[in-house]
Simulated scan of single mutants.
Amino acid sequence: MKAYFVRKAADREVVGLFVAASTPALASLVDECCDPAECEYAPASAGGLMVAGSTAVRWPVPGESGETGLEEAVFTQQWDDDLRGVGGDLDWKPLAPAAARMLRTLGRRGG
Score class of each variant (00 low, 15 high):
residue 86 V to N: 12
residue 46 A to Q: 13
residue 27 A to M: 05
residue 15 V to F: 00
residue 2 K to G: 07
residue 100 A to I: 05
residue 91 D to T: 07
residue 29 L to I: 04
residue 5 F to T: 02
residue 95 L to N: 04
residue 6 V to D: 01
residue 57 V to F: 04
residue 22 S to A: 08
residue 98 A to F: 01
residue 43 P to Q: 12
residue 90 L to Q: 09
residue 49 L to E: 04
residue 58 R to D: 07
residue 81 D to H: 12
residue 23 T to Y: 06
residue 47 G to W: 03
residue 41 Y to N: 00
residue 64 E to N: 14
residue 61 V to A: 06
residue 6 V to N: 00
residue 94 P to H: 05
residue 19 V to P: 03
residue 35 D to W: 00
residue 101 R to V: 15
residue 58 R to Y: 06
residue 46 A to C: 08
residue 62 P to Y: 10
residue 48 G to H: 04
residue 14 V to C: 09
residue 47 G to A: 03
residue 23 T to S: 11
residue 96 A to M: 06
residue 44 A to R: 02
residue 51 V to E: 11
residue 89 D to V: 09
residue 32 E to Q: 13
residue 15 V to R: 00
residue 103 L to S: 13
residue 59 W to P: 07
residue 50 M to W: 11
residue 11 D to C: 07
residue 58 R to E: 12
residue 33 C to E: 13
residue 79 W to Y: 03
residue 15 V to P: 00
residue 68 T to E: 02
residue 87 G to Q: 09
residue 85 G to F: 02
residue 95 L to T: 03
residue 46 A to P: 03
residue 82 D to A: 12
residue 6 V to P: 00
residue 49 L to R: 07
residue 10 A to S: 15
residue 75 F to T: 08
residue 54 S to I: 08
residue 34 C to L: 02
residue 12 R to Y: 05
residue 45 S to P: 14
residue 27 A to W: 00
residue 7 R to A: 09
residue 36 P to D: 06
residue 93 K to F: 03
residue 90 L to I: 03
residue 56 A to E: 13
residue 18 F to W: 10
residue 73 A to Y: 08
residue 56 A to Y: 07
residue 19 V to I: 14
residue 77 Q to A: 14
residue 65 S to Q: 08
residue 16 G to T: 02
residue 32 E to C: 09
residue 22 S to K: 03
residue 108 R to K: 15
residue 102 M to G: 05
residue 61 V to L: 07
residue 60 P to E: 04
residue 26 L to A: 03
residue 70 L to W: 15
residue 111 G to E: 14
residue 80 D to S: 14
residue 54 S to M: 10
residue 91 D to K: 10
residue 11 D to E: 12
residue 17 L to P: 01
residue 41 Y to L: 01
residue 13 E to L: 09
residue 88 G to M: 06
residue 75 F to A: 07
residue 34 C to N: 02
residue 91 D to L: 10
residue 63 G to F: 13
residue 31 D to G: 04
residue 97 P to I: 05
residue 79 W to F: 02
residue 72 E to C: 09
residue 80 D to E: 14
residue 39 C to D: 01
residue 38 E to Y: 01
residue 102 M to R: 14
residue 85 G to E: 03
residue 10 A to T: 10
residue 77 Q to N: 09
residue 99 A to R: 01
residue 86 V to G: 04
residue 53 G to H: 09
residue 94 P to G: 05
